[in-house]
Computed example of a mutant assay.
Amino acid sequence: MQSLKGRVALVTGASTGLGFGAAKKLIEEGAVVFITGRRQAELDRAVGELGSSATAIQADAANKADMLRVADIIKFVHGRLDILFANAGGGHATPLEELTEEQIDRELSVNIKGVVLTVQSLLPVLRDGASVVLNASITADMGLPGFAVYASTKAAVRSLARSWTTDLKHRRIRVNTISPGVVPTEGYSHVQKLSDDDIAAYATRVATEIPAGRVGTAEDIADALVFLASDSSKYITGIDLVVDGGITRVYAGRN
């Protein structure tokens, strides 16, 4: 049975990686899905794979005019939005002494400003009782070397969700976050500049530290999203759902 049949969803940053996996799963569960991204060629490829239930809109999540245009299109086509997955974001490991002002501005912009502008811009089209899910990260908890700026932006995302839970309670809009664990995606090669062999070796090594015995997949995150987007979680709001195979609990136990 499709748990999201007839729902209208938006996934930002969905041309590749976790966002693409999320859009694919939402469609499998019966939703019609709008996806956004900055690169038209990758959006076209994504829609070609996702099929007729997907619509691509080229937009930068950190650009207010772009996101207002996205809201206008969704309103014109469907009149409402039931599910919003603010997924667009990014960052990479950089030692403190090597951080540049450009990198700091970029990660603060896409990971915090982008989330704020996305949710703010879509508020008029979000129906009362809608589900908003923000993409956070386990890095906010782990103190990993080189990830100070990225991790702090993801901690901010969790804080935004808690505040918006009360800001939007009069409209019964639920706001939650998902914190993915180690999930190798295209970003490992495009952003971290790792080769396929490097990614495979990293995944094999890290898997030994994860209680589940493996690294995560985009489908793992998508499954969590479907739960938070569906009526199965109708009494859940303001939480951070950690999807990491147990690795943060292992590290917490070592402290």
Score class of each variant (00 low, 15 high):
residue 1 M to D: 11
residue 1 M to T: 05
residue 6 G to C: 04
residue 8 V to F: 11
residue 8 V to Q: 08
residue 9 A to R: 08
residue 10 L to M: 11
residue 10 L to Q: 06
residue 11 V to R: 01
residue 12 T to Y: 09
residue 13 G to I: 03
residue 14 A to M: 05
residue 16 T to V: 11
residue 21 G to F: 03
residue 25 K to H: 07
residue 25 K to I: 04
residue 25 K to T: 08
residue 26 L to P: 13
residue 28 E to V: 10
residue 28 E to A: 14
residue 28 E to Q: 13
residue 29 E to S: 03
residue 31 A to S: 15
residue 32 V to Q: 13
residue 34 F to V: 07
residue 35 I to T: 00
residue 36 T to F: 04
residue 36 T to C: 04
residue 37 G to I: 00
residue 38 R to A: 04
residue 39 R to H: 14
residue 43 L to T: 01
residue 44 D to E: 15
residue 45 R to H: 13
residue 47 V to M: 09
residue 51 G to E: 13
residue 52 S to L: 13
residue 58 Q to W: 10
residue 64 K to W: 13
residue 65 A to K: 12
residue 66 D to C: 08
residue 66 D to P: 10
residue 69 R to H: 10
residue 71 A to V: 07
residue 72 D to A: 14
residue 73 I to D: 00
residue 73 I to Y: 02
residue 79 G to V: 01
residue 81 L to G: 09
residue 90 G to E: 06
residue 90 G to P: 12
residue 91 G to R: 00
residue 92 H to N: 03
residue 93 A to L: 09
residue 98 E to N: 12
residue 99 L to S: 10
residue 101 E to A: 10
residue 105 D to Y: 10
residue 105 D to R: 14
residue 107 E to W: 05
residue 113 K to P: 14
residue 116 V to K: 01
residue 119 V to F: 04
residue 120 Q to V: 02
residue 121 S to R: 02
residue 122 L to N: 03
residue 123 L to V: 03
residue 124 P to G: 07
residue 128 D to L: 05
residue 128 D to T: 08
residue 133 V to I: 15
residue 134 L to W: 10
residue 134 L to K: 05
residue 134 L to G: 00
residue 135 N to H: 00
residue 136 A to Y: 14
residue 136 A to M: 11
residue 138 I to N: 04
residue 139 T to S: 14
residue 142 M to T: 10
residue 144 L to A: 07
residue 145 P to H: 10
residue 149 V to D: 00
residue 149 V to H: 00
residue 149 V to T: 14
residue 150 Y to H: 06
residue 151 A to S: 08
residue 151 A to V: 04
residue 152 S to D: 02
residue 159 S to A: 15
residue 159 S to L: 12
residue 160 L to P: 01
residue 163 S to V: 15
residue 163 S to P: 07
residue 164 W to T: 02
residue 170 H to K: 07
residue 172 R to D: 14
residue 183 V to A: 08
residue 183 V to P: 08
residue 184 P to T: 02
residue 186 E to M: 11
residue 186 E to C: 05
residue 188 Y to Q: 12
residue 195 S to D: 02
residue 195 S to T: 15
residue 198 D to I: 09
residue 202 Y to K: 05
residue 210 I to Y: 09
residue 212 A to T: 06
residue 216 G to M: 01
residue 217 T to K: 00
residue 219 E to F: 05
residue 223 D to L: 10
residue 223 D to S: 10
residue 224 A to N: 09
residue 240 D to P: 03
residue 242 V to T: 13
residue 242 V to H: 13
residue 242 V to A: 13
residue 247 I to E: 05
residue 249 R to F: 11
residue 251 Y to M: 08
residue 253 G to K: 03
residue 254 R to V: 08
residue 254 R to Y: 15
residue 255 N to D: 09
